[in-house]
């Protein structure tokens, strides 16, 4: 939620000011106004409280549904939950999961990124958005944990650092977390941008 207090000469001016300051379309803005008159009742102005209070979960659902409809994807089921305030999970099933997931989960990542950015426009608090399609991320997490354990065992034995393939932040985090309490190996991220990857090193 966003709020703003200010004075304005007219309701229209107030709306314009709120729209410009929030940078949000007026459809989403609610104004509460209090009319104040000057001493002789000649001039008046308004004390205004503008608020943006959008049901982010409903908005997210609507945008996703419209998107899949426009793509012509059929039998889409979206289940959603809010484990904590400002945390939204959207779990999607459809007839064409591979199309929505994309190569190496690229489309899925972008759907999530788009949605997170969209929802973050409407609030000052930080919003966390998680999107999964056809259990892709759950499955990928399992795979990465297996890879992490396997590689870590190798590193512990041979004492030679191993570089993993480039991964996004979420995937790297899974590996860091998985190996955090290992006694004989350390994990570090190296490289920039597209090349950012994990190196599993032996602990001295």
């Amino acid at each position: 939620m966003k709020t703003l207090n200010f004075e304005a000469k007219s309701i229209e001016e107030a709306m314009e000011h709120a729209e410009r300051t929030f940078r949000i379309n007026r459809e989403y803005i609610t104004l509460t106004t209090d009319e104040k008159k000057s001493m002789f009742g000649l001039k008046k102005h308004y004390e205004v409280t503008a608020t943006v209070d959008v049901d982010l979960e409903a908005l997210g659902l609507k945008v996703l549904k419209t998107m899949f409809e426009n793509m012509g994807i059929e039998n889409v089921k979206i289940s959603h939950e809010t484990p904590e305030k400002n945390e939204f999970n959207f779990i999607i099933e459809s007839d064409e999961n591979p199309v929505l997931i994309g190569k190496n989960g690229k489309t899925l990542e972008n759907i999530q990124f788009y949605l997170r950015n969209l929802l973050n426009i409407f609030t000052d608090e930080r919003v966390i958005v998680f999107v999964d399609i056809g259990g892709y991320k759950a499955h990928r997490k399992k795979q990465l944990e297996i890879l992490a354990t396997k590689t870590a065992k190798e590193v512990a034995q041979t004492k030679v650092a191993v570089k993993l393939d480039p991964m996004n932040a979420y995937e790297r985090r899974i590996i860091h977390t998985k190996l955090a309490d290992w006694r004989d190996v350390d994990t570090k991220s190296a490289g920039e941008k597209q090349d950012r990857h994990i190196v599993i090193k032996p602990k001295k």
Partner: peptide, 13 residues
């Protein structure tokens, strides 16, 4: 890029 990727997925069908 996110918008492009989504449109790209749709077009690839």
């Amino acid at each position: 890029n996110a918008i492009r990727t989504i449109a790209y997925a749709s077009a690839s069908r």
